[in-house]
Design a protein around this nucleic acid. Structure first.
Lengths: 305, 305
DNA sequence: ATTTTGAATTTAATAATTAAATACAATATG
DNA sequence: CATATTGTATTTAATTATTAAATTCAAAAT
């Protein structure tokens, strides 16, 4: 253990060792530690780790370990604790950092992605990045080059158009399903609340137009929540991501855009609450079409900024 | 080069070397090989590889290499050629093998997937498998375990139901789009041909009912082909895969099932050709709903076989 | 008979290594 | 001298080797 080039972090060992110190701390000198299996169970690690930790406790003269006797001979002090590395970025965080990078620097489609550089920049093992990019390739955002490496595909106008069209298909389907739901379904109450929230924000929009982004997400999530389907959900995660990030970086005409969107949302909500299928679909289409145009404009804006 | 533990195959070098032998073969003794850059360009490899290959030609006494003089001193013989390893499985082949394995052995949801074992079984580097599984995780078919490893999620009844529902959303959308297309669009001719093919097969179904599988795929592909959208296409790839494999392994009542399907297809095609929106959607729904039931039955059949 | 331990094996993550690509300076050629 | 070509060094990416950790199984102790 602790060779010069450690092929794998011993993080799990270190945190287990510290937890074992805690256990020792709550015991009296001369007391016996429980069996290896019991410790392994209690700390949710393998016996291998328990045994390594016990070995270290023994060689550090905190316990005397002979066969199945593990006698505490000294109370652990704070300096006995091992430093535990802070965890690496989660997939969600990595996703955030990646999209932020793309949009902040207007990375154009076709750009080669340097895994080693990302690894340094984000402090993420190359391995995790490969995995992350492989996932994105299924979504058509990146592609593998014939001989190693990756390159960015997405964020062209075509991508935005197709994503928006896909969004339309999914949300119109959600609207159709929604309108067949019985009056006792929670969605109706949700929509009443959302209507009120839209009207409240509309009244103070000039001062608080930044707040619309959150409300927008809440509204679309509510509409989509009636469809219980893992494929739809997965697709919506991507849609939310792209639209969210683009709005975050495109601040032109934000007040006007949000004012128009609120009106469209209200028209849509009212049509649904009136159980008017035709009007609901029309209102949905109107809003989604304008959303598509906005996304396209934000892309062009970025490109020629 | 050629150390005992080669960290990477020198496949590229070997095939480049062989191509260089071909070039030498078409030259006369005493002739000069072109510049390194020219060779690199012509063989589509880096100069590094060209230089390694030249070095080997020199040490094998086929050329004399001094500075920029590369003189052919002996014609290459067949025994000079290097053996080139056959390439590894492509992503598509890997996908096929993976799904075949799942369905052939009825691998239940929740099963832990052993990357090392797949690597041996399929003859694919672990690396590629990780990448492949990372892609599937975006589709919700597998999931990463908290501490390393993967496990299978899909192929439960819920999965089949949600996939079928998703399919309905996409194909109904395709039908709606199809019906707005102008008469000169190629789809109308395609549908006429498909109608004839269905009727031809129907006439000889008792003897050739196995052929329906192909026709089924052709028909659904045609319908979906009118939607030009990368997200829809990606989703359809998965749908096709799952339905295809299930039909391949479920042979019960194949004749009856296919007979019914042909009738449903014909009803659907006729409704579309008559430009009847209502009837087209109804026929599509009827067929897709029965397809869903069949998929669910085939799952149960597998489970209790 | 059951629990616990010791040792060996297997699995999975990652550091080290190698093939290949690229960049750049040095040299030769017209 | 300008251009083309080569030699060397660096960077990148794929794969092996190594290590941490989990698991397995038989032996020993209670």
């Amino acid at each position: 253990m602790l060779g010069c080039g450690m092929a794998r972090t011993d993080d799990r060992f270190r945190s287990a060792y510290n937890r074992l110190l805690d256990i020792c701390g709550s015991m009296d000198i001369g007391g016996q530690l429980p069996a290896e299996t019991v410790l392994a169970d209690r700390m949710d690690v393998s016996r291998t780790i328990v045994r390594s930790a016990l070995q270290k406790l023994d060689s550090d003269k905190l316990i005397r370990w002979e066969g199945r006797n593990k006698t505490l001979i000294r109370k652990p002090e704070p300096e006995h604790r091992l430093e535990v590395e802070e965890g690496t970025l989660s997939t969600e965080e990595l996703e955030q950092r990646f999209f932020e990078w793309i949009l902040r620097f207007d990375v154009p489609a076709g750009t080669a992605l340097n895994v080693a550089q990302f690894s340094r920049q984000f402090g993420v093992p190359v391995h995790n990045l490969q995995e992350f990019l492989a996932g994105l390739s299924r979504l058509g955002l990146v592609e593998r080059r014939p001989r190693g490496g990756w390159f960015l595909l997405g964020f062209t106008s075509e991508f935005a158009i197709e994503l928006s069209d896909f969004r339309m298909v999914l949300e119109l389907n959600a609207v159709r399903q929604l309108l067949t739901l019985p009056p006792e379904h929670e969605i109706w109450q949700k929509l009443e609340t959302l209507k009120q929230e839209h009207e409240d924000l509309k009244a103070v929009l000039k001062d608080r137009y930044h707040d619309f982004s959150l409300l927008d997400e809440k509204f679309h999530s509510a509409i989509n929540s009636v469809v219980k389907n893992r494929f739809v959900l997965e697709a919506q995660k991507l849609i939310k991501l792209i639209f969210h990030y683009h709005y975050m970086w495109d601040k032109r005409d934000e007040l006007e855009r949000n004012a128009a969107a609120i009106e469209e949302h209200l028209e849509w909500i009212n049509a649904i609450l009136a159980h008017d299928v035709e009007k609901s679909e029309a209102a949905a289409l109107k809003h989604l079409r304008r959303s598509k145009v906005t996304l396209l404009q934000s892309l062009r804006g970025h490109k020629f900024a």
